Amino acid sequence: MIAVLAQINKVEAVVVFVPMMGYVVQKTGWPSVFWIMGALGLVLAVVWLQVVHPPLTHPRVNAAEPGYLHEGDASIGVDAKKENRVPKVDYGPVRFSCAAA
């Protein structure tokens, strides 16, 4: 169902934006289309960051929902920051010899 909705949105975007951008190109020139679409993208990115939340920190999620998601093997929280497991290597003499060369 989500794939169908995404495909419909692609078609609607073409139907709306192609004629609109054609009109803008005729009136103001082709570079203005890039400025307008870039500004629109930045505005939509800000809106997206304000509206979309991860499942565990969503403001409308109740206490039972994260457990339900974990029971169903949902991949939530997999991108959480983990401790750095890569050992630190001391490059002291090597760095000095490269800098001296």
Rank of each mutant, 00 (worst) to 15 (best):
L49I: 00
P66T: 03
Q50L: 09
W35D: 01
N62A: 05
V51Q: 02
Q7R: 11
P55T: 00
E12C: 08
H58N: 04
N62W: 00
V24R: 08
V4C: 04
I8C: 04
I2K: 15
F34Y: 14
I36C: 06
L42K: 14
L49Y: 15
M37I: 02
V4D: 02
A13H: 12
F34W: 13
N62G: 06
M20H: 11
T57E: 12
N9K: 11
I2P: 08
V4M: 08
Q26G: 06
M20D: 08
P19L: 08
W35C: 07
V16R: 12
G41Y: 11
V51A: 06
V43P: 06
A45Q: 14
G41Q: 07
Q7V: 04
A3P: 05
T57I: 00
P66L: 05
Y23D: 06
G22K: 10
P54C: 03
L49R: 11
K27Q: 14
V47T: 02
I8F: 09
G38I: 00
N62T: 03
M21W: 14
E65N: 00
I36P: 09
N9M: 12
L56N: 10
A63D: 07
I36A: 05
F34C: 09
I8R: 07
F17C: 14
V52C: 09
G41I: 05
E12H: 09
